[in-house]
Computed example of a mutant assay.
Amino acid sequence: MTKWLQRPQNETPLPLWNEDVPFLEAGDDANLPRLTPFFADTEDVASAIVIYPGGGYAMRADHEGAPIARWLNTLGIHAFVADYRVAPYRHPVPMLDGQRAIRYVRYHADAWGVDKARIGVLGFSAGGHLAATVSTHFDDGATTQADAIDGVSSRPDLSVLCYAVISLHEHRHKGSVENLLGANPDPALLDDLSNERQITAATPPAFLWHTADDEAVAVANSLMYAAELGKRSIPFDLHVYEHGVHGLGLATQDPHVGSWTKTCAAWLRVRKFC
Rank of each mutant, 00 (worst) to 15 (best):
L24W: 09
V86K: 03
E196F: 08
E178M: 13
L190F: 13
Y225G: 11
E64M: 02
F38G: 01
R100C: 09
G98E: 07
C162R: 02
N195D: 09
F80R: 02
A126Y: 09
P15N: 14
A164I: 08
H129G: 11
F124E: 03
T143S: 11
F207L: 06
S222A: 14
D28G: 13
T136D: 04
V45D: 00
L16M: 12
P53R: 04
T200V: 09
Y241K: 06
Q253L: 10
M224N: 13
E215R: 12
T12C: 04
G244L: 00
E196T: 08
F23N: 15
A188E: 15
T42E: 03
F236Y: 15
V114G: 05
Q253F: 10
R155C: 05
V134W: 07
L130I: 08
P67H: 04
P205N: 10
V165N: 09
S194N: 10
L168W: 04
D44A: 15
I119E: 07
A188I: 05
D115S: 14
N73G: 00
A131G: 11
A226I: 12
F23C: 11
L5V: 07
A126W: 08
H108P: 02
V93F: 07
D192Y: 12
V245E: 10
L35A: 02
E228H: 15
R155Y: 11
E178N: 14
R269N: 14
